[in-house]
Design a protein around this nucleic acid. Structure first.
Length: 848
RNA sequence: GGGCGGUUAGCUCAGUGGUAGAGCACUGCGCUUACAACGCAGGGGUCGGCGGUUCGAAACCGUCACCGCCCACCA
């Protein structure tokens, strides 16, 4: 690291320490709701890797917060860590080489090394959770360091984690409230299921992936003669077939409705039914309904009201069955059993192959299988397609509340507004209630027990709930009221719900976790509903949706007034970053190279909602700005003498133009377009101040002219405050230069236009003098001489005398800045257009 | 299949009806007492295509193309 980079990092570290010690960013609980700005911060998944995308979106939040703080608002900006759930479990499995087996007893002496390799060790649930706790502590520390490094102005005393006691309390309490209100129920039903993780998943966690498959055509006989051909990509579900369906208007099959088809191999008679959901032009136009191939199968199964034939188990292997009994109806149970037994225990892929072979041997296939590419549903974190498996799960009903939830979404102001549409589309497209239970270990336990009857059967209708005062509880180690632990799992006793909540069921409550809800309502109401929910657009369907839903169900509220949506970060070539492509930009790398302010500058230049490229040029630009601010400040702060009110026309022009920048920047912040605020301030700083004014004002400033000195100091003071939300470190450094007792710029007030004078002639004065000065520079550049080379004679001709007057009013500054020996301003027509300037520059013969 | 964005200089992006912009990259000059981690000057664009509205369109309307994202019952 170079010396200068080191200085930069030391400077940042110094202010980081000062802000913590000074309490610059602490929430003041004594101030009222209307003077407080509250952020419902996204708790990042700490078991994921640190990503430049975190820096981008969290900086967006911090920009807004810093602006609001300078507007005089009391800021409530907590930070949460999302450690709950599958990502942590996966990481523990990987770094310790273990897996959770809940049947095993707790081993208090278990020792496993971080990063150990070799055989995977099965461990008890309690041991597993202990390892999870170790891992999340480390991960949280890394995120904390990163976030402090980029200068997030959180109140670090307001930290929480989604697995901590407070979160478990809030999560369980809110769930019990829903249960009281009849807004949560459990049922045994076909649910989307990941066969690797062996857990239910919710609609929001599902994604389509295009996969290759084979279309197999299978001949079914029809009772009473004839046959029909079904095309399917999932022949392994043939034993689970409970009906075949065609469109009611389909001439090919019209005569078959009401009859029965006989499945090949298993000889099961199944009804041929008509339904408009069958599309004549897909496959052969007639399809088999299996328990369960997809969500439509589930619907048809419900309509038919027949028992399911479950063939796929929770582990993704084929279950055993007794053909000829119960739902396993067959015209030839013996041969059905013989065929089926060849499948039992095999994986889905193996079973598919076996069924095809059996069908071919039986002559039940038609033609060659055709290749097809089609979307297949996956758990977003999973590797194998989802299956529909019957299991008992807890749901929060949302299908009957779409209208209300859309209405709630409309009450929120979305920035940019287009994301409201994405929210509405998602809610409108919901096709199932929210499944909140997961068959996992590291999560918030579902706080209920069930009674066991005298026969030893679990009576799911008899739900035992804890007293709210006892929360949080773990039903696998705590006993319900009226029972003792030795009655667990015994007839006449109880059993705990074995599952945990979906991570989102807890994350949905982030506005209530740090607020003190519901026990400290006075405090809660000072920070709820919150003002701002910042988040990225990918989790509108999850986090935004679930938060709006839970707030509505809890007390009819909206959780936040504004939602600010950040885009994604793409690599410098605008491609998606991924570890496999090796194009990942690490936040620590760019922070090392360019510094926190420069990285924040890059974030601030990205508009809300738009994806941004991690472009090194923009980081560089930011770093250049930081250097420029320090250098400009060094010049201004180095001048000696008393400053006074601005009286000189150029000084009035500069400050008047700054006055308009203050207004424009404020308007931009107020309309959630921080990138425009940055652009306006930066243009003024670079072009007006450093390129031109600092040069033009030098002679007067060195001479101690009070108007120039006052102007320079005011300009610096104001522009630092305009820059402070974006580059907080250098702004603080320069603000406190030479001060014995630092006083944070971040507690200073946002500039107001009224602090600055307004001059009618500001733009004319500035533009005219700059035009002349630029021409002088051009002449010197063309003559290939240095910028300080003397000008023997500068003549400006113009037909418009008032234009020349503006130049004349600041001619002394112009003469000094251009090193001009003789300046002549002539109201003469030299053939130039209208009132254009015609500028003649006669350079001196020598540099003397 | 439906929806939402985007398309402006080699690159990353501003620019919502009035003479096409910035930074980087490129070329030339310059160490000038704030700044060589820099400054000054310069070259570079049929604003994705077509049609329309208008005195005037990068901008407004229509349409098409391409890129990206979101969603959709996987036969």
């Amino acid at each position: 690291m170079s010396k200068k980079s080191q200085d930069l990092h030391e400077m940042e570290e110094r202010w980081r320490a000062f802000w913590l010690e000074d309490g610059t960013y602490l929430y003041d609980s004594s101030r009222g709701r209307d003077e407080t700005f509250v952020v419902d911060t996204p708790p990042p998944t700490v078991s994921g890797s640190l990503h430049i995308g975190h820096v981008f979106s969290f900086t967006h939040t911090d920009l807004i917060v810093r602006y609001k703080r300078m507007q005089g608002l009391n800021i409530y900006y907590p930070m949460g860590w999302d450690d709950n759930g599958l990502p942590t479990e996966r990481r523990v499995q990987n770094v310790f080489g273990v897996r959770c087996d809940p049947r095993l007893p707790y081993d208090p002496d278990l020792k496993v090394e971080f990063g150990r390799e070799g055989d995977v060790i099965p461990i008890s649930r309690k041991n597993f959770i202990e390892l999870c706790d170790i891992v999340v502590q480390e991960d949280e520390q890394k995120f904390l360091e990163l976030f402090q490094r980029i200068g997030l102005s959180c109140d670090w005393n307001q930290m929480y984690a989604t697995i901590d006691e407070r979160s478990r309390y809030v999560s369980q309490l809110s769930f019990l409230n829903l249960l009281d209100k009849g807004q949560a129920d459990h049922r045994e039903a076909p649910t989307m299921w990941d066969v690797d993780f062996q857990s239910a998943v919710a609609q929001a966690e599902v994604e389509d992936r295009d996969k290759d498959g084979m279309f197999h055509k299978i001949r079914f006989e029809v009772e009473g003669g004839g046959d029909l051909v079904i095309a399917t990509t999932r022949p392994e579900l043939l034993p689970a077939c409970i009906a075949v369906v065609a469109h009611p208007d389909d001439e090919r099959y019209k005569d078959l409705f009401g009859k029965k088809a006989i499945t090949p191999l298993f000889k099961a008679p199944v009804p041929i039914i008509a339904d408009e959901k069958a599309e004549p032009d897909k496959g052969t136009g007639i399809l088999m309904v299996c328990t369960f191939g997809d969500a439509t199968d589930v619907e048809w199964w419900r309509q038919l009201g027949v028992p399911a034939r479950e063939v796929i188990g929770r582990d993704g292997r084929i279950l055993s069955a007794e053909w000829g009994e119960g739902p396993w109806e067959s015209n030839d149970p013996g041969s059905a059993q013989a065929h089926y037994d060849k499948l039992v225990g095999s994986s889905i892929n193996q079973a598919r192959k076996s069924v095809v072979e059996l069908l071919e041997a039986d002559g039940a296939t038609v033609g060659e299988p055709e290749h097809i590419r089609r979307p297949v549903k996956f758990f977003e974190k999973g590797d194998r397609p989802l299956e529909f498996v019957v299991s008992r799960q807890w749901f929060i009903p949302v299908m009957d509340k779409k209208k209300e939830l859309i209405e709630q979404g409309r009450k929120v102001e979305w920035h940019p507004a287009m994301f409201l549409k994405r929210y509405v589309d998602w809610v409108e497209g919901l096709n199932q209630d929210w499944c909140v239970s997961r068959q996992r270990y590291f999560g918030v336990p579902i706080p209920v027990w069930y009674e066991i009857d005298s026969e030893g059967n679990i009576v799911y209708d008899k739900v035992l709930v804890p007293k709210k005062a006892d929360l949080p509880i773990d039903p696998s180690s705590d006993a319900p009221e009226g029972f003792t632990e030795d009655q667990r799992g015994k007839p006449g006793g109880f059993t705990g719900d074995p599952d945990v909540f979906d991570t989102w069921a807890t994350s949905a409550l982030t506005p209530r976790i740090p607020s003190g809800w519901p026990d400290e309502m006075e405090r809660h109401l000072k920070v709820y509903p919150t003002d701002l929910r910042p988040q990225a657009h990918d989790i509108i369907r999850t986090w935004a949706f679930v938060t709006i839903t839970r707030s509505y169900l809890e007390d009819g509220s909206i959780p936040w007034h504004h939602a600010a949506i950040s885009g994604f970060v793409l690599d410098p070539d605008r491609k998606k970053m991924s570890k496999s492509k090796g194009n990942v930009v690490l936040p620590t790398d760019v922070l090392d190279e360019y510094g926190a302010d420069a990285v924040r500058y890059w974030s601030a230049s990205g508009r809300l909602g738009l994806d941004a490229a991690a472009d090194p040029n923009v980081f560089k630009e930011g770093k250049r700005l930081v250097t420029k601010i320090r250098n400009a400040a060094r010049l201004i702060q180095g001048y000696e003498g008393e400053g006074g009110p601005p009286t000189h026309p150029l000084d009035l022009a500069l400050l008047s133009r700054l006055r308009h920048v203050v207004q424009e920047a404020t308007d931009a912040w107020e309309s959630w377009t921080h990138s425009i605020a940055l652009e306006r301030v930066e243009t003024w700083f670079w072009s007006d101040l450093t390129d031109n004014y600092l040069e033009l004002s030098k002679s007067r400033a060195y001479a101690g002219d009070p108007s120039a000195l006052g102007t320079l100091r005011t300009a610096l003071d104001v522009v630092l405050r305009l820059f402070a939300p974006i580059v907080p470190f250098v702004a603080e450094e320069v603000w406190n230069a030479g001060a014995d007792e630092p006083s944070s710029i971040h507690r200073a007030s946002w500039p107001k236009p009224d602090e600055l004078p307004e001059s009618e002639n500001a733009n004319a004065t500035f533009h005219n003098v700059v035009e002349v000065l630029t021409e002088v520079r051009r002449a010197k550049s063309e003559a290939k001489v240095s910028i300080k080379w003397p000008v023997e004679r500068l003549t400006v001709y113009c037909n418009a005398p008032d234009r020349l007057e503006f130049v004349r009013s600041v001619s002394a500054d112009l003469i000094a800045a251009g090193n001009i020996k003789n300046l002549e301003l002539k109201a003469e027509d030299k053939g130039q257009n209208e009132d254009d300037f015609l500028i003649e520059v006669q350079l001196a013969e020598s540099q003397e």
